[in-house]
């Protein structure tokens, strides 16, 4: 089950955050902090890798949750916190990337790298989440 979704821009600023359950509630400052810490961790992980061509952390498994990360070629990170061993989270993140490309980037009132405030994106995301949760 999905708990929350974060979108971080290429410089590490949180541009979108949404909780899907009352379990994993963080206040706004904490979400911003989490976003930029994850951004740095991700960057460090790819530099620490002993093998060349590492693209950074894709999945972080903890005792109580999984954190799935998806990074686009332009450096935007979509990551979701989900319950342990949730299925289909990676596919969900890719679909959210599709929604972002459609309803955020094609919206003339959206400024690149700024927080996402697009009604249609929220709407489509809600139906995508219901779809994933019921799958």
């Amino acid at each position: 089950m999905l708990l929350s979704l974060y979108i971080v821009n290429k410089s590490g600023g949180l541009i979108y955050h949404r909780d899907f359950s009352s379990l994993a509630k963080l206040d706004t400052n904490d979400t911003l902090r989490l976003g930029s810490i994850w951004h740095s961790l991700h960057a460090i992980s790819s530099q620490l890798s002993p093998v060349p061509g590492c693209k950074g952390i894709e999945l972080l498994q903890a005792e109580t949750f999984d954190l799935h990360n998806f990074q686009t070629p332009t450096g935007i990170k979509f990551f979701a916190v989900a319950e342990c061993n949730s299925q289909g989270v990676d596919r969900f993140l890719k679909r959210v990337y599709g929604l972002y490309a459609d309803y955020v980037l094609k919206n003339p009132f959206y400024e690149l790298d700024m927080p996402i405030r697009c009604e249609l994106f929220d709407l489509q995301l809600t139906s995508e989440v219901t779809l994933t949760m019921n799958a």
Binding site: D102, Y103, K106, N107, P108, F109, R117, C118, E119, L120
Partner: peptide, 14 residues
């Protein structure tokens, strides 16, 4: 189809 009008633009319809 892809346009969300921000609140401060009020009644604008593209």
């Amino acid at each position: 189809r892809f346009i969300s009008v921000p609140r401060d633009m009020g009644h604008l319809n593209c």
